[in-house]
Amino acid sequence: MKTFTYEKATTVDEAVRDIDRAGAKFIAGGTNLLDLMKLQVETPDKLVDISRLPLGEIEEREDGGLTIGALVPNADLAADPRVIAKYPVLSRALLAGASGQLRNKATTGGNLLQRTRCYYFYDTAMPCNKREPGAGCSAIGGFNRILAVLGTSENCIATHPGDMPVAMRALDATIVTLKADGDKRRISIHDFYRLPGDRPDLETVLEPGELITHVELPAPPEGRQVYRKVRDRASYAFALVSVAGVVKVADGKIASAALAFGGLGSMPWRDGAVEAALVGQAPSDAAFAAAADALLADAKGYGSNDFKIPLARRVLIATLRELTGE
């Protein structure tokens, strides 16, 4: 861990003002950042502690949606009765992640920014374009069991490890931010993450010093909601494949579908082609297979993660059966 200075922000305006130079970072729960700092994967020279800001509430909006403060802990969000009743896919995704202790500390805003668990990203002795653009990618040609098969580039095949953001993509969440100059932004989660391309170090569209203050969920979607996570042990492991699904069946046909995926992509994955293959169709194995074809048409394995492609197909089909079954 490199030496850093530490400031406690008491207001949101103060927090964005205190982020006054490159190399400074916000810290809330610290469940990911502190680990990375100990390994010198992250080396901020200043931390602005936002954990005491008044961003810990979940509020209902007039449009029927929820506004979630960026500092709402994962545990509280998962246990909120409105979330359980109206957005069960989100509650289940949260509970599928990490451990009870971590969920007590991890925050909504921080969890959106969780960094990859690529083995090589974590070891500063190995080249990694995400840590140091241009250094090279050790995961290509190395072990990549847990890494991505969708949205990769020749520079990076890291997976986004989260569960909560996957559910939020299926729910069409909006991320509300405050920039250093005082401007507020509302960013659709679909525009929030970036593909690695040749700058895998840049993972979101957030500008330096921009603070996530809230996440908005639109009014609850109609239909059935499911989160299914497949991993290497029964708990406390990152997804090999996960599916967040919201599907409505009416008059024997799929009226609407929102499907997002974890463990597969360089970011929480959602592909309109998957849903297009389903909407208007009667639920059937043929339709589900077409959806899987659409999802995996451009999937590329890198050796030890090849199995994710057939696994994703199987999991998607089974999940669609669950979403559309009697």
Binding site: Y119, Y122, G142, F143
Partner: peptide, 25 residues
């Protein structure tokens, strides 16, 4: 334990990725 074939290093060198059984297992 995964040994990288390019230098022999242990690739998964923490308890997040070296999977001992957890209570749920």
């Amino acid at each position: 334990l995964m040994h990288d074939p390019r230098n022999g290093k242990i690739v998964n060198r923490d308890l997040g990725e070296y999977h001992v059984p957890v209570n749920a297992d």
